[in-house]
Design a protein around this nucleic acid. Sequence first.
DNA 1: CGCAATGTTGATGTAACTCAAACCTAGTGG
DNA 2: CCACTAGGTTTGAGTTACATCAACATTGCG
Lengths: 234, 234
Amino acid sequence: MGAMDLPHGHPQGDDALEQLVARVPLFSALVPDELTAVAQRVRPRKHPRQEQLYGAGEKNSKLMIIHAGRVKIYRITESGHEQVIRILGPGDFLGESTFISGATSDHFALTLEASDICELHHDELHDYLLAYPSVAVKMVETLSARLAGTEHQLSMLAGEDAEHRLAAYLMALHDASGKALVKLPTTKKDVASFLGLTPETLSRKLTQFEEIGWLRLGSRRQIELLDVEALRLI
Amino acid sequence: MGAMDLPHGHPQGDDALEQLVARVPLFSALVPDELTAVAQRVRPRKHPRQEQLYGAGEKNSKLMIIHAGRVKIYRITESGHEQVIRILGPGDFLGESTFISGATSDHFALTLEASDICELHHDELHDYLLAYPSVAVKMVETLSARLAGTEHQLSMLAGEDAEHRLAAYLMALHDASGKALVKLPTTKKDVASFLGLTPETLSRKLTQFEEIGWLRLGSRRQIELLDVEALRLI
DNA sequence: CGCAATGTTGATGTAACTCAAACCTAGTGG
DNA sequence: CCACTAGGTTTGAGTTACATCAACATTGCG
């Protein structure tokens, strides 16, 4: 668990790294040779839980790719409260927002659990994208998808009430896992922030849904969805 | 202003088209030869005002680049009301969200005024990005910036009240133009939707700001900002 | 110039927030 | 490994900002 803190350079390690890189959607279109080239330049690091990867105001100059763990992206609004933007997991990348030269990010990234994350300096990223256009195309596609997701969340926040938002969120979790037993990716406090609610309102709506019989609240952030159709139709 | 409805093919027309393409941020990193190549493949079109460029469900397979005019991007929420996502102007592009093969867009694009828009089929776009990686890099940067903007709007909607949202919006208009006399890009109805408010609330807050002396409401969507500092500090 | 869409103003209702207090859970350190 | 504690969660009561409904005024397009 602590043997990869520093690059060792032995063949076994490089192979493993290449395997990791190959699993990242961003690099999935690369041919083996290119994959090897990328793997050699990427710096893997372990991060403990609750570590701040970057903060607002810093000029974070690294693209980070998550191999294992979860990362919370959030903003501090002008009125001072925390707004969760998204939760990232394995295969996702972050730090691209400051790729536009000079711009400093206005949000924070925090590991929610111990995480394995690869880093790539922005200068290098720029060269990579020019050298491997397929990575650039993949990145365009990923950003498009992420943008569409954020826009969807935006119109949910603006247009729907608390119940609709919560139901839609639960359905998204359900569709992602395919199972009736879903697990919140983080604390209810953060989920509430993500949904634009106070923790109190989230708690109330969840118990309300439970009373109606649409779901059952379990321990350890588990929720068993009993009536998926009802939630979808809300 | 109306002589370019159809491509004419004479040198003058091509030069003009090349000039237009060169002004699009997306293509700003291209060298002259590449610029010519792009200009030859791009199809310019005129659109009347209030024309639907694409709608939800359609598999829109074109990247569109705005040369002149304004385009409203909006979604119909599940509860049936219109949510404005953004207003695009000259130099902006749209239609990239369905670039991810197969995905159908869930939002609509409508011209707010007569517009000149160039089209590029997605297949061609894919080839272009591979052939001209600098365009892909530019697109990554643009999408990053757009994502950051949407995330900002998101946290505004979730975290701030009506006054803060309106004040921040007015400040954004002010910062974009640099002048104290700003002009709403579209109807107040649409601006209200963009800010996640009802038209009634927007109207009330604007008159309230006027009574305080922070601004003066003019005709034709003009607003004169009298106390920029107060608005910024709200 | 006339009509439909947009914008304004007022009265009323309610969903969700705030504040507060008690309870529970999960990581801490001994 | 267990007990401690800080943060997370739940429940309750009271408040308010904003939506809704409605009537009227204005704008600007055909």
